[in-house]
Design a protein around this nucleic acid. Structure first.
Lengths: 191, 191
DNA sequence: TTTACTAAACTGACTGGTCAGTATAGTTTT
DNA sequence: AAAACTATACTGACCAGTCAGTTTAGTAAA
């Protein structure tokens, strides 16, 4: 691939989804945004379904590589979760970064057809494993991950769940929680 | 309203979204599902946009009334969050209940047009207030809510984040967390 | 007489997908 | 070195199908 047109199309599609709204993410709009013809888009992707699938794949790839990046410099317990937090929260509500743009595409995919989430679903067993092996109490670790998901989805949808101060406090607390070692028995319900 | 046709249409629309897929939630399909004519659907709703808006409104109404129901029998600190947890988690992954169906519609709305989330966005300040006044440490309270959101969205999308045992453990832990009073200083980062 | 519909035909705009043909760069043949 | 050929990348016009929304004419009940 001399000129990475495929990558450009994916980025353009994500961009259209954010700027013009997901309902306007037509193949024509994607082509226009990428500065190529519609035919060229179909040259690279068999169908819109195929494009959407690639976008979801791109999101999981970005997430995985962010985590790997963090873990290459942080081998303490909980590093996987710190990577996951970083990947989920790189986007502020306005002015979404590349990950945020892809996230919107992810939502699109989910809404249009759940089967498009295959690339994401395929990563779940590995992620669950990573979370359970993170060195933290597994239940607490899952909760951290779910809270990150919750914050992320609300961001992507533009639902104002938290104000700026609350947001900062929540993120700091989640980060602090990734540094709490497993406590053998806190409330009497440890298996 | 002698025969609650409006309600029936909303329920039917949610049903179509779940059973036939969101992309097939056409006005014709909704009418057919409700067992009425397309004209009747347009008699009650000015447009599809209007119907979607009503579906999101219905979801927030169901959530609010579930919370109110729980709080009428539970006045301990954290009762709001226990109500919210109940509202979010009434649905198992398969076999969605009414709330789960509406949730899918919510996703649809979000994906098609963020402005459709207005009814949901309007409730956020009140929910934030309720969380902050819940009697728990506010940051922890927000995290519980976000984790519930995270579990909910993954359920709705059908992403297998947790296996059955993990799921049970996480829900129990979240419920336990709603009973933990605010600890003045646990880790040294309380304002 | 107003409210709440049914039934069915129709329109107008949009959108995913197709396809014949063109451009470019590199490779083999003569 | 020129000619012939190949693979890849892309253009741009076109189309068949879909769907929200409209219209019309009529029915049933309170």
């Amino acid at each position: 691939m001399v000129r990475d047109t495929k990558g450009k199309i994916i980025a353009s599609a994500a961009n259209v989804a954010v700027t013009r709204g997901v309902q306007n993410m037509t193949m024509d709009a994607v082509a226009e945004e990428a500065g190529i013809s519609k035919g060229a888009v179909f040259y690279h992707f068999d169908s819109k379904h195929d494009l959407l699938l690639s976008m979801v794949q791109a999101l999981t790839d970005v997430t995985d590589s962010t985590i790997a990046d963090v873990q290459s410099k942080d081998t303490e317990p909980g590093s996987w979760l710190r990577g996951f937090l970083k990947a989920s929260l790189t986007n502020t509500t306005e002015d979404l970064g590349p990950v945020g743009r892809l996230s919107v595409a992810f939502l699109t995919a989910a809404a249009n057809d759940t089967s498009l989430l295959e690339p994401m679903n395929r990563r779940q067993p590995a992620w669950r494993e990573a979370i359970n092996q993170s060195g933290l109490d597994p239940v607490q670790a899952q909760i951290i991950r779910l809270a990150a998901d919750g914050l992320w989805i609300n961001d992507v949808m533009g639902v104002p769940v938290l104000d700026a101060a609350e947001r900062t406090a929540v993120i700091e607390r989640l980060q602090a929680m990734t540094r709490e070692k497993a406590k053998p028995d806190q409330k009497g319900n440890q298996a």
